[in-house]
């Protein structure tokens, strides 16, 4: 479905040049859920943004269904791949009602039965028609993220790029959104690429994942391996340990981790 090879992303020029992604390669099968894990500055979100055209592809290949993507991406691309952003407070237009937010993609792509599609989209993400004319400030964080998911799904894409979809939410709301995402994937046969700093979230939603650090892929592993604590790379190992909570017994030398 999606094939990324030696992807490079470079921002700026000259002295201000930043190599956000140095080298990343992975392959995602149709219907699969793939995870990208790393800390801030690892370039995991930039990979997503490069796939959908929000960041430049400076080197390497991004292929969707075997075809190299074009810049700028065409409308057909956006009907295939959609994205959900991290912060539901920033990803909805503050002056647009839910109705307007959901009807915009339909209007852009000239979809006819907007009325039924909007109501259906709301139903799919577990919200009733009473939410249709609300403004974002009348919604909770979890409800906003559901609207963002509904917006991404309303064009019936095959691939959903999820950029930390639950990290701005409370734990109990996170559980609801994760369940919803899993449910939708099974029902619609979607392909996910999930970016997160939280190993547990990635392991919950994905079968395979790529650990990234400083713009490079460190290792590709499976969530089963993570669960059993197997990691060939010491950095992955330290991420696993840190995700278990604070521990007084094993003080690590600070210099090995901070960069």
């Amino acid at each position: 479905m999606l094939d990324i090879q030696n992807l490079q992303v470079i921002f700026g020029t000259g002295r201000l040049q930043v190599q956000a992604v140095k080298n990343a390669s992975f392959h995602v099968e149709a219907g699969e859920s793939y995870g990208l894990v790393g800390e801030s500055g690892s370039g995991k979100s930039t990979v997503l943004r490069a796939i959908c055209g929000l960041a430049p592809i400076s080197g390497g290949h991004v292929r969707v269904d075997g075809k190299e993507v074009t810049t700028p991406r065409g409308k057909a691309f956006y009907r295939t791949i959609q994205m959900v952003f991290q912060d539901p407070y920033a990803s909805l237009h503050p002056r647009h009602t839910v109705d307007r937010t959901l009807s915009e993609p339909l209007a852009i792509h000239g979809v006819k039965d907007a009325e039924t599609r909007i109501l259906q989209a709301l139903r799919e993400v577990g919200l009733g028609p009473s939410f249709r004319f609300r403004y974002p400030h009348q919604l909770s964080g979890g409800q906003r993220q559901r609207i963002a998911i509904a917006r991404a799904l309303i064009l019936r894409p095959k691939v959903l790029l999820l950029d930390e979809p639950t990290s701005a939410l409370d734990a109990s709301v996170q559980a609801e959104v994760l369940n919803l995402l899993e449910d939708l994937r099974h029902k619609m046969g979607l392909t996910y690429i999930l970016v997160s700093h939280d190993l547990a979230v990635v392991a919950h939603l994905c079968q395979r994942l790529l650990v990234m650090r400083n713009g490079e892929s460190i290792e590709e592993t499976t969530s089963a391996a993570l669960r059993s604590g197997q990691a060939s790379n010491s950095y992955t190992q330290s991420l696993i340990e840190a995700s278990q909570g604070f521990s007084r017994d094993a003080p690590q030398p600070a210099s090995s981790l901070a960069t």
């Binding site: 734990a171 109990s172 559980a175 609801e176 899993e182 449910d183």
Partner: peptide
């Protein structure tokens, strides 16, 4: 509920219990 609704590496529960 707060304890249970967090996904963990230790066990694999689908769907996650909600609060």
């Amino acid at each position: 509920g707060l304890m249970r609704c967090l996904p963990t590496l230790a066990d694999d529960v689908h769907p996650l219990p909600t609060l």
